[in-house]
Nucleic acid binder design. Structure first.
Lengths: 139, 139
DNA sequence: CTTGACATTGGACCATGGTCAAATGTTTAT
DNA sequence: ATAAACATTTGACCATGGTCCAATGTCAAG
């Protein structure tokens, strides 16, 4: 038999068979060919595409962003600028997210420093601060 | 009438009425008292609790973490160390998340620098890199 | 030939944090 | 008195990214 079963490409790409079927359902990958016994059958190129998805996901792209990336990568009219825009926007999103988290972290650390960690919590400055609106405004 | 309707405390705390009812369903806030006409009725202290939830959420706590925080804050046996442990763990989680995102961001920026952004994408280094396993391993 | 490991399908379900709709009742303002 | 603006309930639904299940079929090894 030439061609891979779903379990094989799944393993190659580092995802589960369920996930491969899920991606097919979502239209992220083409419906696979079938054997006589109705098993999905894949070619080497399918590993490439699936791995593309996996790597992009590891880079923080959502499935819908990956869909765009994939369609760009298969459209001969796509320019480098198109691709760069997508990755640049994603980078910007991640930068914003990091900024948000950093702000939150700082607030949390400040809160943590207020409290010496000894004794009963009835006068815990952390709880007090959550109960009063005194603390730094978020948003 | 003394007491606030759901719309009023919702506004005071900066959430929607739906959200207040949702919090009640989840057990995050006690079932409110009722008027004769079955309207929920709240006291000033309820604004405090609801605002506590809102502020904690803005600090990145999940509802289940907030549940813990709230029960700690109402248990007289709670020590400052208990509270500090929760906020410290949360801070640590956020630090990890920031680290992850930073790693991803760096990979994305590297990818972005590979590409000059001019011309057709058929030889776009970003797409090429997503298609080959050469790029930096994630995880 | 049997057993185990794989495949198929449809559909339910997980967590998260709500949001929205419909049908109905109440309060308030004019 | 009537309309607008609020409230109630039940229950469905949103996105995200799958995971798990049962019932059934197929394939390969011994």
């Amino acid at each position: 038999m030439n061609g891979l079963t779903i379990g094989k490409i799944a393993k190659q790409a580092g995802v589960s068979s369920d996930t491969v079927r899920f991606y097919e359902r979502c239209g992220l990958i083409e419906p696979a060919g079938r054997t006589d016994s109705n098993y999905r059958i894949y070619r080497e190129e399918d590993i490439v595409r699936l791995s593309f998805i996996k790597r992009a996901k590891d880079l923080g792209f959502s499935l819908s962003e990956i869909r765009v990336l994939l369609s760009l990568s298969h459209d001969p009219g796509t320019t480098k600028a198109d691709v760069k825009r997508i990755t640049g926007e994603k980078a910007e999103k991640i930068r914003r997210k990091i900024k948000d988290l950093t702000r939150i972290l700082e607030a949390l650390e400040q809160l943590n420093e207020l409290c010496d960690g000894h004794g009963p919590a009835d006068d815990c400055p952390i709880l007090q601060s959550l109960n009063r609106e005194s603390g730094g405004q978020c948003h």
